[in-house]
Write a protein that binds this DNA or RNA. Structure first.
Lengths: 227, 227
DNA sequence: ACCTGAACACCGTTCAAGT
DNA sequence: ACCTGAACACCGTTCAAGT
């Protein structure tokens, strides 16, 4: 047999293949299911082999998350829109991505300074700049927007996790939560009780977008105040 | 020796003592340090004993978090303030609590429907109602506000965790992050690069409050629009 | 250079056995 | 009723040994 330097066996382990398999596991069975054992099994290799291509589990999850962010932000950057509209569009795209894959929300929230989060930060930042925000407020406004988006994503992720743990569908989970809220002491939780009924029928996505609009309205209001 | 029915040994295990010890561990050595072994050692008991008083680790962390929330919200409720001011005051109190104890932020973010989160939700909700928000928007506005506050808390917690892992002080951590940001490809991350210099000197607390004000401005702007 | 898989140092949780 | 502590079923990570 002659030597085939530089030619790999067809199923050679690469960082991309590992990330791909990780995403598949995360999508199919959730965050808890991603273990080095499960990953090694799927890739038909030993658990230790993965460490040759990936630093550790944190690195792995960030890489998986980044692959998703590249897609989401890439798709959003393609079209030319006025900045406020682009902020809305990217926010919704992020919401949808985090809704479809709850693990993305918790990954983003757990690695604030990492590249996937920076992609989001940068894209929002450019739009806020285009909106004509003053230099001093720029950072603050972008940080607030990012916190809100990641906050919603983290909440969604935590909800999905709990629902998954109790093997409940989303609607059944919300219904159960509403029931618990309605059973609370009305003296201690008057507001929660009064909105418990609305809970199972509300539209997360619409609520999220209203939150974004609240921000944009706030920014606009500030500008007219300062002029 | 006569029987002492109903009289406990002085150091009897109780849920309160367990929660107290948990808070001490979390404050002193961070989230990772709270294990049932460490807790049992501190309480001079067996790890299994704790399960008589506490359902599981999630339950334990929520209980610890709730003890903090009762304090923070209790202190805030005491004083009578106009609603917008009260929202600012509670937000800042929450920020300070989550800043002093990063584990509170991650606990709140990880248990969305649990009692500690509901306390915050309810208090914000009452203020938003007092602000005269319409019934339809009420829930949406409160949910957005809560998401923002918890989002900031979760980010803070993640930052503290990373800093703690690398054994860095807050300022050293921010400086290192700024350096990493400055080293990014300017073509891919123009905004991040342009704000990298501001990063180490910015005031988290002030930024957070500006975010709250942005919300309040947005709510106010909405009201005048609808009238 | 890359892979194998056993070993290590942990976890949360359970449970038979004690008081 | 409450506590003990060993045992169980996992984790992420390391590393000597292979190719």
């Amino acid at each position: 047999m002659r030597k085939l330097d530089g030619i790999r066996r067809q199923d050679a382990l690469t960082r991309e293949r590992i990330v791909e398999a990780s995403i598949a596991i995360l999508d199919e069975d959730g965050e808890k299911a991603l273990t080095f054992q499960a990953l090694a099994r799927r890739l038909r290799t030993g658990a230790g082999a993965i460490y040759w291509h990936v630093e550790n589990k944190r690195d792995l999850i960030i890489a998986a998350c980044d692959a998703i962010m590249v897609d989401v932000i890439g798709a959003s950057t393609a079209s030319q829109r006025p900045p406020a509209e682009e902020i809305r569009a990217l926010s919704l795209a992020l919401f949808d991505a985090m809704d479809a894959r709850p693990w993305v929300g918790s990954a983003l929230a757990q690695a604030p300074g990492a590249v996937p989060t920076l992609r989001v930060l940068d894209h929002f930042g450019r739009q806020i700049q285009a909106l004509g925000t003053s230099d001093e407020e720029e950072w603050t406004v972008v940080a607030a927007l990012l916190s809100y988006v990641l906050g919603v994503g983290a909440q969604n992720a935590a909800n999905a996790k709990t629902a998954h743990m109790r093997q409940l569908e989303r609607s059944a989970f919300l219904a159960e939560m509403a029931k618990q809220w309605a059973a609370l002491d009305p003296a201690a939780f008057p507001f929660v009780q009064s909105v418990a009924a609305k809970m199972p029928v509300h539209d997360d996505r619409a609520d999220f977008l209203t939150g974004i609009d609240l921000f944009l309205d706030g920014i606009a209001a500030r500008k007219t105040m300062h002029v």
